[in-house]
């Protein structure tokens, strides 16, 4: 370590220093100083980037949640301008932790960088089939579909079936809800810089489906409130809030807040 600190000070760029950063990173993969120097060496000495990818794969497999190694990967792939093997590598990562945040964030970058949306939509299906509650995979699906031409009615059927499979799956409910504009109380506004796509809830009839799922599912009830609000049926919306105050005790104050907001609309 002390030797490395001396190198940091001297700003030396050489193969010797390059090798040393490799040793340091193996010992402490979050050592950002070492990556900074390593990338300088890579660029200035024009070292083999494919060999560097082997090094990165090795370090990442042993340390899957380190910011620095993922950023290093991103920069090297950017420079290589070739994503061969990357999807397979991510598959290995998600095999161990299918919600690895770094892995999914990197995948968003990779997909956007190489414009592989269509292929990715097929690939992400694997993760949803494996675990329908995998919110990282749902989030990725949303990203993909907001970048592609979309048959939203087909997508709605897909979501409904997913919910039927596991009715208390918050990930699927959030995904469903995410496609719609929600009712705005007087002091709220849409996010003007949002990157997500949104439709009007009233253009799609989901009420039958919500009733089918049941009257004790808090996600279904919460979405039903949105329909009632948009119809101006405040009385029934308040009733559901009261119902939820009994059903969903941990959020008792939130449902009281919703109820008060709706009462405010009547007055």
């Amino acid at each position: 370590m002390d030797y490395f600190r001396a190198i940091v000070k001297s700003e030396e760029i050489s193969e010797r220093v390059f090798d040393l950063t490799g040793i340091i990173i193996h010992k402490l993969p979050s050592n950002y100083n070492a990556y900074f120097i390593r990338r300088k060496c890579l660029r200035q000495l024009k070292l083999d980037l494919n060999r560097e990818m082997e090094f990165i794969n090795e370090v990442t497999i042993a340390n899957q949640k380190v910011y620095q190694i993922w950023e290093h990967r991103r920069q090297v792939i950017e420079e290589l301008n070739d994503f061969k093997g990357e999807i397979e590598f991510l598959h290995k990562i998600f095999d161990e932790d299918n919600k690895n945040y770094h892995g999914w964030s990197y995948r968003v970058w990779l997909c956007d960088r190489f414009k592989i949306y269509d292929a990715e939509l097929i690939d992400v299906q694997y993760y949803l089939d494996e675990d329908i509650g995998n919110n990282s995979a749902w989030n990725y699906r949303y990203f993909l579909l907001s970048k592609m031409p979309l048959d939203f009615n087909a997508e709605l059927e897909y979501i409904k079936n997913a919910i039927r499979l596991k009715q208390d799956n918050e990930a699927a409910w959030n995904y469903l809800r995410g496609w719609f504009k929600m009712f705005k109380f007087k002091n709220d506004q849409e996010n003007p810089y949002k990157t997500y796509v949104q439709f009007n809830l009233k253009d799609f009839n989901l009420l039958e489906f919500l009733n089918e799922v049941g009257l004790t599912n808090r996600f279904a009830l919460s979405l039903k409130i949105q329909y009632l609000l948009q119809d101006g049926n405040y009385k029934d919306a308040i009733e559901i809030c009261e119902n939820l105050q009994n059903l969903d005790l941990i959020r008792i104050k939130y449902w009281q807040y919703m109820k008060n907001q709706i009462i405010g609309l009547i007055q």
Partner: peptide, 17 residues
């Protein structure tokens, strides 16, 4: 604001969970 997701929370970078 551009990192707020469809769920309502914010991701580390744009389009992240």
């Amino acid at each position: 604001a551009s990192c707020q997701t469809y769920e309502g929370g914010i991701g580390g970078v744009r389009y992240s969970e």
